[in-house]
């Protein structure tokens, strides 16, 4: 398979979810958290998942990120059924295409900003020279050059999340999965982060799937998927937003 083959064309589906269910526990205690979710997400699309707490948003995102697997149904990523992949193949795809952003940032405390950004590249065996330039690009882009030797505890929440996004982005992923990226931030920092995410989508064509509680931020996307009690309650297109090519 050549490089260009696994670059999906804009508008082609990157995710195809078919009847995805996820339950925890068994028997009497079984909790059905996702109940037959079917959903297509196109390459370059910006999807917001909303819904009340406990409705299964994070669980869905984890399945899409291959951190978790459906108990029933299938999730296709770029045409491949994730449940048919070996652990090794999953790690490979994951490394190549998926970037994660967390509400709680989840930076490694023992690493400087620079090293946190470098880590995903290390796991991808990127050569030292390339690594340096990619990390430098990211620092530059997010105006963090001066902070590159600081440790996470020395940063504000917004700065931490910037690093979190930069870390997801440094591998140039096809898709960024963001679970309440602004959840811990106050509004000015939240706006900054959301603008950044939208730019990524618009200018770089990165597919975005975000979970959010904030209606305003939900409207940054093209599509809003509302979950209720493990099922899709509604899918709506956001007025004035459409998938664009650059």
């Amino acid at each position: 398979m050549s490089e260009s083959d696994d670059q999906p064309q804009l508008g082609e589906p990157i995710y195809e979810l078919r009847g995805v269910s996820r339950s925890f526990g068994s028997g009497f205690n079984e909790a059905h958290v996702l109940k037959g979710i079917s959903l297509d997400i196109a390459q370059g699309e910006f999807v917001s998942i909303v819904g009340p707490s406990g409705s299964g948003k994070s669980t869905l995102l984890n399945i899409m990120g291959m951190l978790d697997a459906p108990t029933r149904g299938s999730c296709y990523f770029m045409g491949q059924a994730t449940h048919e992949l070996s652990e090794r193949q999953r790690v490979k795809i994951h490394r190549k295409h998926i970037g994660f952003v967390f509400q709680a940032y989840h930076l490694i405390d023992e690493m400087t900003v620079y090293e946190n950004l470098e880590t995903p590249l290390l796991y991808r065996k990127v050569k030292s020279g390339d690594r340096k330039s990619k990390v430098a690009d990211m620092l530059d882009r997010f105006n963090m050059v001066a902070k590159k030797d600081l440790f996470p505890e020395q940063l504000s929440g917004g700065q931490k999340q910037l690093v979190g996004i930069a870390r997801a982005l440094v591998i140039e992923p096809r898709v960024i999965l963001a679970d309440e990226p602004t959840g811990n931030l106050h509004s000015s920092q939240g706006d900054m982060i959301m603008d950044l995410i939208r730019d990524l989508n618009r200018n770089d064509g990165v597919t975005i799937v975000q979970v959010t509680h904030n209606e305003r931020y939900a409207a940054y996307g093209h599509t809003v998927v509302e979950l209720l009690d493990g099922s899709i309650d509604s899918v709506s297109q956001v007025a004035g937003q459409s998938v664009q090519s650059d």
């Binding site: 951190l67 880590t119 796991y123």
Partner: peptide, 15 residues
């Protein structure tokens, strides 16, 4: 958390 983040960043179990 460190393990989780590393895995999400692409670390395999053997690494």
């Amino acid at each position: 958390r460190e393990v989780g983040v590393r895995k999400v960043a692409g670390a395999s179990r053997s690494q």
